[in-house]
Lab assay of single mutants.
Amino acid sequence: GQVNVNNTTYTFPTPKLAKEFAQKAAKKYNLTVHVSGNTVTVK
């Protein structure tokens, strides 16, 4: 799974890890998680 945070893309071996990372990043920066297919964007 891929996660985009502040124009930086992070790649994870599983969608589960990507989702967990996205949720932590969203909480940390007070942003929202947007899911589109296999790509998760935090903005």
Rank of each mutant, 00 (worst) to 15 (best):
G1S: 13
G1I: 14
G1R: 03
Q2I: 12
Q2N: 12
Q2M: 12
Q2H: 13
Q2G: 12
Q2W: 14
Q2E: 10
Q2T: 13
Q2D: 11
V3G: 12
V3M: 11
V3C: 09
V3E: 12
V3Q: 12
V3N: 11
V3S: 12
V3A: 12
N4S: 12
N4L: 11
N4D: 10
N4V: 11
N4G: 12
N4P: 12
N4E: 10
N4K: 07
N4M: 11
N4Y: 06
N4H: 13
N4F: 08
V5S: 11
V5K: 12
V5Y: 11
V5R: 10
N6A: 12
N6P: 10
N6S: 13
N6R: 11
N6W: 15
N6Y: 15
N6L: 14
N7I: 15
N7K: 14
N7F: 15
N7W: 15
T8Q: 09
T8H: 13
T8V: 14
T8D: 05
T8I: 14
T8M: 11
T8Y: 15
T9D: 03
T9W: 05
T9A: 05
T9Q: 06
T9E: 05
T9M: 09
Y10W: 09
Y10M: 05
Y10H: 04
Y10E: 01
Y10R: 02
Y10S: 01
Y10P: 00
T11A: 04
T11Q: 06
T11N: 06
T11P: 02
T11M: 07
T11W: 14
T11H: 10
F12Y: 02
F12L: 03
F12H: 01
F12V: 00
P13F: 05
P13L: 09
P13H: 07
P13K: 13
P13A: 14
P13I: 05
P13W: 05
T14N: 11
T14M: 02
T14R: 02
T14H: 04
T14V: 02
T14Q: 02
P15K: 11
P15T: 10
P15L: 11
P15I: 11
K16N: 08
K16Y: 08
K16E: 15
L17C: 10
L17I: 07
L17Q: 11
L17T: 04
L17F: 04
L17K: 09
A18R: 00
A18N: 00
A18E: 01
A18I: 01
A18D: 01
A18H: 00
A18S: 01
K19N: 09
K19R: 13
K19V: 08
K19F: 11
K19A: 10
K19H: 11
K19T: 07
E20M: 12
E20N: 06
E20I: 13
E20F: 08
E20L: 15
F21P: 00
F21S: 01
F21D: 00
F21I: 02
F21Q: 01
A22Q: 02
A22K: 02
A22Y: 02
A22V: 02
A22S: 03
A22P: 00
Q23M: 11
Q23P: 00
Q23H: 09
Q23S: 08
K24A: 10
K24I: 14
K24H: 12
K24V: 12
K24W: 15
K24Q: 11
A25N: 03
A25E: 04
A25Y: 15
A25I: 15
A25Q: 06
A25R: 03
A25S: 04
A25W: 15
A26S: 10
A26V: 11
A26K: 13
K27T: 09
K27Q: 11
K27G: 06
K27V: 07
K27N: 09
K27M: 09
K27E: 13
K27A: 10
K28R: 09
K28F: 11
K28Y: 14
K28G: 04
K28D: 10
K28N: 08
Y29V: 05
Y29S: 05
Y29I: 04
Y29Q: 06
Y29G: 07
N30Q: 07
N30A: 06
N30Y: 08
N30H: 12
N30W: 13
N30D: 05
N30C: 04
N30P: 04
L31F: 06
L31D: 03
L31W: 14
L31I: 10
L31T: 07
T32W: 07
T32A: 09
T32C: 06
T32Q: 10
T32S: 09
T32N: 08
V33Q: 00
V33M: 05
V33R: 00
V33D: 00
V33Y: 07
V33T: 04
V33I: 07
V33H: 01
H34V: 15
H34G: 04
H34L: 12
H34P: 01
H34F: 14
H34R: 06
V35W: 07
V35S: 02
V35Q: 05
V35M: 04
V35Y: 04
V35N: 02
S36D: 11
S36R: 08
S36N: 12
S36F: 10
S36C: 04
S36V: 13
G37N: 05
G37A: 04
G37T: 02
N38D: 03
N38A: 06
N38P: 03
N38W: 03
N38Y: 04
N38Q: 05
N38I: 06
N38H: 06
T39G: 02
T39V: 12
T39E: 05
T39K: 09
V40G: 00
V40E: 00
V40C: 00
V40F: 04
V40K: 00
V40W: 03
V40Y: 04
T41M: 07
T41S: 05
T41Q: 06
T41D: 03
T41G: 02
T41F: 08
T41A: 03
T41V: 10
V42T: 03
V42A: 02
V42S: 01
V42N: 00
V42P: 00
V42L: 08
V42R: 01
K43N: 10
K43A: 11
K43L: 15
K43S: 14
K43W: 15
K43F: 15
